[in-house]
């Protein structure tokens, strides 16, 4: 890998009371790379994302973004978050704002863009995710898949250097999962750096450059999708994949 590292986790430990959510995770994400985090629920994947942009503070270890350590002082963290888009499992659109205002709120309040410029940027992004005709709707009038696509546009409006996806399709009806995954695939094809927590093995296999398998707060195996899905080395990875009905041959 010749590209420069952009997000580096070094021996990250996170505890919630007696529960150790992350037991020393090290992982490096390079510019332009798509890394999928897979593994059983509760294995620490989502926690790692929330630590990446300091929504959760670390207990031990170090995370650096673009060469600078992510610290939990408010001002420096805000600079990091501006450049790291995040997409949540439950969309978390702002229900009191229209679709357009959901997308412009970041650029106008954080980047201090004028409303007209922010609107233009938002419209371009809404068109990109296929929702140009929904800008005056409120989130409650949209399907789950549409809401998640707005959430992706909202994150992209900050022109981030990196996108974090926290189980972006887990709360969706099966028929709307595809539209969200296809937007994500387009982003990946355009060279966006992405860290994706997902249970969509097919997406991980087709889109990821690398896959990291989590179990009990650790990365138990890391490799190309080819390595992980066709010839997993760690028995626990094989168990997990076969649990999902994945046997390595289904191409």
């Amino acid at each position: 890998m010749t590209a420069a590292p952009i997000l580096v986790f070094e021996n990250v430990v996170k505890r919630y009371g007696a529960l150790t959510a992350l037991a020393g995770v090290s992982l490096t994400l390079h510019r332009g790379e798509v890394v999928c985090l897979i593994g059983p629920s509760g294995s620490g994947k989502s926690t790692l994302l929330r630590c990446a942009n300091a929504l959760d503070p670390l207990d031990q270890g170090r995370i650096s973004f673009d060469g600078h350590e992510v610290r939990s002082s408010e001002t420096s963290v805000r600079l990091v978050r501006q450049r790291m888009g995040m997409v949540f499992q439950n969309f978390e659109l702002f229900p009191h704002l229209t679709v357009l205002r959901n997308v412009t709120i970041g650029p106008t309040t954080v980047l201090k863009l004028g409303q007209a410029e922010a609107d233009a940027r938002a419209r371009k992004l809404l068109a990109k995710v296929g929702l140009a005709d929904k800008e005056t709707s409120h989130p409650s009038a949209l399907s789950g898949g549409q809401q998640q696509r707005v959430a992706i546009a909202r994150a992209l409006a900050m022109e981030p250097a990196l996108m974090l996806f926290d189980e972006p399709t887990s709360a969706l009806d099966p028929e709307t999962i595809g539209e969200v995954l296809s937007v994500m695939k387009t982003l990946a094809d355009e060279g966006m750096t992405m860290l994706v927590v997902t249970h969509e093995m097919d997406f991980a296999r087709r889109v990821a450059n690398r896959v990291a398998v989590f179990d009990k707060g650790r990365v138990i195996e890391e490799g190309t999708p080819q390595e992980i899905f066709t010839a997993p080395k760690v028995p626990r990875t094989r168990d997990f994949l076969s649990h999902l009905g994945w046997h390595g041959e289904s191409k």
């Binding site: 929330r50 942009n53 929504l55 408010e74 805000r78 600079l79 978050r81 501006q82 450049r83 790291m84 888009g85 995040m86 949540f88 439950n90 978390e92 659109l93 702002f94 709120i105 970041g106 309040t109 954080v110 909202r154 994150a155 900050m158």
Partner: peptide, 16 residues
């Protein structure tokens, strides 16, 4: 909390 997180993740201040 998710609404807070969504705003904070955009880089907004807690006050904002």
């Amino acid at each position: 909390q998710g609404q807070w997180n969504a705003g904070l993740a955009l880089g907004m201040s807690r006050f904002s």
